[in-house]
């Protein structure tokens, strides 16, 4: 094997040291502060995460008029809700929502890299940025969905949305059967980031509910 494909055995230790060294130097030089890294990460852990999108989904499931407004103008509809004032913030300035129905299943991808609606979905998981996913989801979405456990009937149309201009797409999943008695909060706990990207369906009795920052690597 050529050297090009050899990895340094201390790869992660050196990456960590370089990142920490860069941070320390930028603080010394007055570019950022000693609190910048924690400030940014706690914002994404606690404020701008997929729990926001899950609440929007639960609202759309329980309020058909809201759902219609969400599909027509996502940013304007979300601004009606009781959220802190950043739902049209970084990487969510212009969002579009695609609705899954009995006849249409939507999948969002970014073949160029990792475009993603931060205010509603938080930061993209690694698989979304994986070149294998980006390459395969474009040409063989049904096979990819099957690998993720979403086995669609042939009659269901699959729509793949590749975000590479200035719009950030996400998916309004189907409300699962057996959730008729649930309130918005209970419903929101069922909605995963994967469901809002179209690689999962929402289950009425998922193995785990609620948002777990540790599961995202925070």
């Amino acid at each position: 094997m050529s050297d090009r494909f050899a990895y340094d055995p201390d790869r992660e230790a050196k990456n960590e040291a370089r990142a920490k060294a860069l941070e320390a130097l930028l603080i010394e030089k007055g570019v950022i502060t000693a609190k910048t890294v924690d400030t940014v990460n706690s914002f994404f852990q606690n404020e701008m995460g997929p729990f926001n999108g899950a609440k929007v989904v639960a609202k759309a499931w329980t309020d058909p008029q809201f759902k219609a407004r969400l599909l027509a103008d996502a940013n304007a509809a979300i601004e009606e809700l009781d959220f802190p004032p950043f739902m049209s913030g970084a990487e969510g300035e212009h969002m579009k929502v695609a609705e899954n129905t009995d006849t249409v299943h939507n999948l969002i991808i970014c073949t160029l890299c990792s475009c993603y609606p931060w205010p509603t979905l938080g930061l993209p998981p690694y698989w979304y940025k994986d070149p294998t996913f980006r390459a395969r989801a474009a040409r063989e979405p049904r096979a990819v969905l099957k690998e993720f456990g979403v086995d669609l009937d042939d009659s269901v149309e699959v729509k793949v949305w590749d975000s590479s201009a200035q719009i950030r797409w996400w998916v309004l999943p189907k409300r699962p059967d057996g959730t008729e008695g649930m309130g918005e909060e209970e419903l929101a706990a069922l909605v995963t980031p994967e469901a809002m990207m179209g690689v999962a369906v929402v289950e009425a009795n998922p193995p785990r509910t609620g948002y777990d920052p540790a599961a995202q690597g925070f």
Binding site: E12, N15, E16, A19, K20, L22, E23, V37, N41, G122, L123, P124, P125, Y126, W127, D130, T132, F133, R136, V144, E147, F148, P193, E194, V199, A215, Q216, G217, F218
Partner: peptide, 16 residues
């Protein structure tokens, strides 16, 4: 697709 890896960060330094 390997995994799929659902973490946003797979090493703590990536957050930095």
């Amino acid at each position: 697709i390997q995994g799929p890896e659902t973490k946003v960060f797979v090493q703590p330094w990536e957050k930095t």
